[in-house]
Simulated scan of single mutants.
Amino acid sequence: MSDIIVSQMDIDHLKIIRQSIIDFMIYVAKHYANKPGILLDIAPQIYEGAKPFFLQSIKIETFDINPASGCTYIGDICTYNNCLKNDIFDYIVCTEVLEHTLQPFNAVAEIWRILKPGGIIFLSVPFNLRIHGPLPDCWRFTEHGLRVLLKDFSILELNNIETLERQLMPVHYTVVAQKLSK
């Protein structure tokens, strides 16, 4: 098997995305998650996850598909998880996860189920980035796709970082959305 050559653009975009996630977590912790509550960090993986960014009065729980992850809950976000009660979380962090799910609409439905009415999801996804791990890497979402995916939520903010040399090809999206009572 030949060596994979990673382009400079992909290296640059990955740096942009990682900084965007840090900036996003700092921003939402200050402006949206400033009250005590329970936060679920979905698939925090090997990175710091949400914990360093939020108040100590916010209890951080974690969720991952990998049984070896050491997370609070183990399951597939694309299915109903008995270990998670309805309407339990005040906040959910889901950064760089949906592109790896096999059924993103099911994942968002499960997030809806476990988020309290009035609860807020902090979501981010890459757009202009190469296929990356953990595999599978199945999807890229545009602003329009995110609005459809989050149709049952009130989108409070939907922001992107544009690719400088290519309009309408954002590097990254961040979303703050609230679950309203149906």
Rank of each mutant, 00 (worst) to 15 (best):
75 G>L: 11
26 I>D: 06
98 L>S: 01
57 S>K: 11
58 I>S: 02
116 K>C: 05
150 L>Q: 02
32 Y>D: 05
166 R>H: 09
20 S>Q: 10
58 I>M: 00
45 Q>P: 00
147 R>P: 00
57 S>R: 08
25 M>G: 02
48 E>W: 00
16 I>L: 13
71 C>D: 07
3 D>W: 08
13 H>N: 15
7 S>V: 02
68 A>Q: 13
153 F>S: 10
144 H>S: 10
28 V>I: 11
75 G>W: 05
138 C>M: 11
176 V>Q: 04
43 A>S: 15
8 Q>R: 04
113 R>P: 04
2 S>L: 11
96 E>A: 11
123 L>Y: 05
175 V>Q: 04
138 C>D: 02
155 I>Q: 12
93 V>G: 03
85 K>G: 03
114 I>S: 07
102 L>W: 07
147 R>T: 00
142 T>S: 14
146 L>S: 02
162 E>N: 05
92 I>V: 15
128 N>Q: 00
146 L>R: 00
5 I>P: 06
173 Y>P: 04
16 I>D: 13
116 K>D: 03
97 V>R: 02
89 F>L: 09
13 H>V: 00
153 F>Q: 06
75 G>V: 10
100 H>A: 06
121 I>N: 01
72 T>S: 07
72 T>L: 04
4 I>T: 15
74 I>Q: 09
79 T>I: 08
126 P>A: 07
52 P>M: 02
153 F>M: 08
79 T>F: 14
47 Y>S: 13
150 L>V: 12
170 P>V: 01
121 I>A: 08
99 E>R: 01
